[in-house]
């Protein structure tokens, strides 16, 4: 169980997250939905423990262990991982080496992970994870990397961004695959096709959980109400 209790986070005197509480279980899929700028990605970065996203108040627990002050590396070693919305590029690093950062990972597993994200291993293993990969290819490599880590909890920040619409099925397939393996998947999205795959969703507005519950209801409410709402970037402005 991964638990966030009354998390508050501010930056440059702006209150971005204003007291959020959430619970995630392994083997289940969760949605974090909301308009642009409401703080969805920030929640993901806070869970991962990125250096600029240390909380001002509140606590994070992983299986009852307080990890609020735990460094990012240790969080990863304890089973939390992040699929970045825009993954970084690395000059001179091959896809193969990138996917085998953990020396326990075998080449056959790497090839299987590439197959899962619709990248042919023969064509991609020796490509570099640099500017020459398209945005979509880079994102797919990152998804393969997250699959190989076999985390307890994976935060997927806009998993479909930068990926062609034909690959939405692949994303859905990956979410199912991770769930079957027991990973708790936390999907940050505003795409209905992705959000609807989750069992339970949190609707974020202005840095707060505005609504939570079964995903079909939350997604319906979001589509009906939030699309026309003027609260875009509300969290950062206030």
């Amino acid at each position: 169980m991964l638990t966030l209790e009354n998390i508050k986070y501010s930056k440059n005197s702006n209150d971005i997250i204003k007291g959020i509480s959430m619970k995630f279980e392994e083997g289940k899929v969760y949605g974090i939905v909301g308009n642009n700028g409401v703080g969805k990605s920030t929640i993901g970065y806070i869970i991962m423990g990125l250096s600029d996203y240390r909380v001002n108040e509140g606590e994070i627990f992983l299986n009852e262990r307080n990890i609020t002050d735990m460094p990012i590396t240790d969080r990863a070693k304890n089973g939390i991982s992040l699929l970045w919305q825009e993954p970084a590029r690395f000059e001179g690093m091959s896809v193969k080496n990138y996917l085998m950062l953990n020396k326990k990972i075998k080449l056959k597993e790497v090839e299987k992970a590439l197959d899962l994200v619709n990248l042919e291993p023969d064509k991609y293993l020796n490509r570099l994870v640099d500017k020459k990969l398209s945005g979509g290819e880079r994102k797919k490599v990152e998804i393969a990397s997250c699959v190989l880590l076999n985390p307890k909890f994976l935060i997927m920040d806009e998993p479909d961004s930068g990926i062609d619409i034909m690959s939405l099925d692949m994303i859905v397939k990956i979410i199912d695959y991770l769930k079957e393996r027991g990973t708790g998947v936390i999907v940050i999205t505003h795409r209905k096709e992705i959000a609807i795959k989750s069992e339970y969703s949190y609707l974020i507005c202005a840095g707060k959980v505005f609504l939570e519950g079964k995903s079909d209801k939350i997604v319906k409410y979001y589509e009906k109400t939030c699309d026309t709402c003027g609260h875009i970037n509300y969290a950062e402005e206030n």
Partner: peptide, 24 residues
């Protein structure tokens, strides 16, 4: 920082991540 933290979010320490990036 985003390069370092990408690798750290996969379990590498900051020094290991830096070495990996520089070697590349």
């Amino acid at each position: 920082q985003d390069q370092l933290e990408t690798l750290m979010s996969k379990g590498l320490t900051e020094d290991e991540a830096a070495e990996f990036i520089v070697n590349g």
